[in-house]
Design a protein around this nucleic acid. Structure first.
Lengths: 240, 240
DNA sequence: CGGTTGTTTTAGGGTAACCTAAAAACAGAT
DNA sequence: ATCTGTTTTTAGGTTACCCTAAAACAACCG
C-alpha cells in the first residue's frame, strides 16, 4: 500500500511527538507540520480509517502497531539518507535534514538499502540519532539533556537536534559534534547560560540550546558502546 | 520560480518530442505522459501564460528560449542522476530511469552539482545520452539508427533508449552497451530481423529494436571522439 | 469544394491536499 | 458547579492536478 508523502509526514510527526508514551495532540501535530489544526483533524480521521492510528476525538492519537512500523521505516530512510548525503556527497551537516526530507519520499526501498550497504550498516546518523535496523525492534534513546547534567562530571555529547541549520552551524563552529567530550563547569542563575568545557576551552551555552544537546555521563567513546546504549532505551533522569 | 513536478514533466516531454524542429502536438504529449488530451490542452494554456511555450491552438506547441533552457536543465539533472545511480550505488541500468524520474523532482541543484563533481564531469549517461553542461549550448546528437545503417561497415553503438527495462535487460544479455562494436551482416526481407555481428557472434535483432539503437559508422571508441560527436548535431542520414 | 475522419477544445466533474471562521467540547479555577 | 479560556471539530472554500464525453475544428481525398 503506497502512502502519500503527506501521510508519511503525519506518521513521522505523530511518532516524534508521542515518542515515549503519550498520545499526540492535534495542535502539536499542526505546529510541527506547519498546518492548521482543522487540516490535522481531517487527516487523523483518515489515518484512523486506514488503521494506522487509534484516534479518540479531543484526546489525541496514538500509532497502532502497523502505524508505528511504518513510522520507524520512514525514520530509517530519513537517517540513512542524511548520512549518505554527508559521507558520500559531502553535503554540510546543517543542510542534509531538509534535503533528506524531500528525497525520502522519492527514493525506493532498494535505493535506501544500497545506501545502507555502501555505508557499511551504520548505527547513527550525522546528528547522533540511531538508525533503525530492518526487522529489529526500535526505540529512541533517552540520553539526558546537557541542561540537566550534573556539573564537574565528564560527559560525551551523543545527539543534537537536526532541524535548525543555524544551530548546527553554530555547534560545528564550537566543535560540538556527537562523540565530543565535555564537562559542565557551572550554571548562571535565573536559567542563564551554562559554562561548558570543550577541548580545553570554555564555552557559554544558553539553556534553550543545552536542552537540545543530549549527553552520556562519563562514557568512553567507542562505537560499540554507542550502539548498545542507543538501543537500550533507558529512563531519562528528571533532574532539577 | 519553482515549477511543479507536473510542469517539469510537460517541459521534458515537449523538448523530447520537438527535438529537431517540429512543434509538439497535444496528442503526442498526452501519450508520452499517459494523460488525456483534454488535460494537456489545459496545461499548455498555463505554460503559454507563463511564457514557457508558444502555443497555437490546433497547431501544437514549441518551447520558448526560457522553456528550452529549463528543459535542458531538467535533462541534465535526469541524466546525471541516472549515471550516479549506476556508478555510485550500483543499481542495474534497466531500473535507473524510473528511479531518476522521481529523484529529479526532489534533489536540489546543489546535490546534482555534487554528483557531477563526484562523477568527474561525465559527458554521457548509462544509455549513451549526452549530459548537458551548465552554461553551454546543447543539442541532442542525431546518430543514425542501426536499422538504417549500411551492411558490412564497422559500427559503434552510441546510444540506446532508456525507458523500457525489458529492452535494456535484453540488450545487456547481448552485451549491447554503448561503445560496443558491431556490424550489420544482412537484413531479412519484409522488414524482418537484422543479422548483426557482436563480439564475433551473430545476433538477430528486430527492426523495432534496431530503430532504437543509435550507431556511429566506423569510428574508434575514444571518449574524446564521443564527446565531440555528441555535441556536433550533425544531420541524420535518411537511408533506404 | 464539401464530406469524412481524426485531432483538439470545451464543459462539467472528481480527488487530495490546504485554508478560515464559527461552533462545540473540555479542563482548570473560582 | 459553573464560568472561562483553550483546544478541537465542523462547515464551507480554494487550488492544482486529473478525468470523460461531446462539440468544434482541420485536413485530406475524391
Amino acid at each position: 500500500m503506497n502512502r502519500s508523502a503527506t501521510v508519511q509526514d503525519y506518521l513521522k510527526a505523530i511518532f516524534a511527538i508521542g515518542r515515549d508514551d503519550a498520545a499526540a495532540g492535534t495542535n502539536a501535530i499542526a505546529a510541527r507540520l506547519a498546518v492548521s489544526a482543522g487540516s490535522v483533524t481531517g487527516m487523523l480521521k483518515r489515518l484512523s480509517g486506514e488503521g494506522l492510528v487509534d484516534y479518540e476525538p479531543y484526546r489525541g492519537v496514538r500509532l497502532t502497531g502497523e502505524g508505528r512500523a511504518e513510522a520507524v521505516r520512514l525514520v530509517r530512510r530519513h537517517r540513512l539518507i542524511e548520512l549518505f548525503l554527508v559521507r558520500v556527497l559531502g553535503l554540510p551537516w546543517d543542510r542534509v535534514h531538509e534535503e533528506a526530507e524531500r528525497l525520502e519520499h522519492a527514493a525506493t526501498d532498494e535505493l535506501v538499502d544500497r545506501m545502507e550497504e555502501l555505508l557499511g550498516h551504520p548505527t547513527v546518523d550525522p546528528h547522533g540519532a540511531p538508525i533503525p535496523e530492518v526487522g529489529r525492534p526500535f526505540m529512541e534513546p533517552a540520553w539526558p539533556r546537557l541542561s540537566e547534567a550534573p556539573a564537574g562530571v565528564r560527559l560525551v555529547l551523543r545527539q543534537v537536534s537536526d532541524e535548525d541549520p543555524e544551530v548546527l552551524r553554530y555547534l560545528e563552529r564550537l566543535g560540538l559534534m556527537p562523540g565530543k567530550e565535555l564537562r559542565v563547569l557551572g550554571r548562571a542563575p535565573m536559567r542563564g547560560p551554562l559554562r561548558v568545557e570543550v577541548d580545553g576551552a570554555v564555552e557559554h551555552i544558553g539553556v534553550e540550546m543545552a536542552n537540545e544537546l543530549r549527553v552520556e555521563a562519563g562514557g568512553a567513546v567507542t562505537p560499540e558502546r554507542m550502539r548498545r546504549a542507543g538501543r537500550s532505551g533507558r529512563e531519562e533522569k528528571a533532574h532539577a
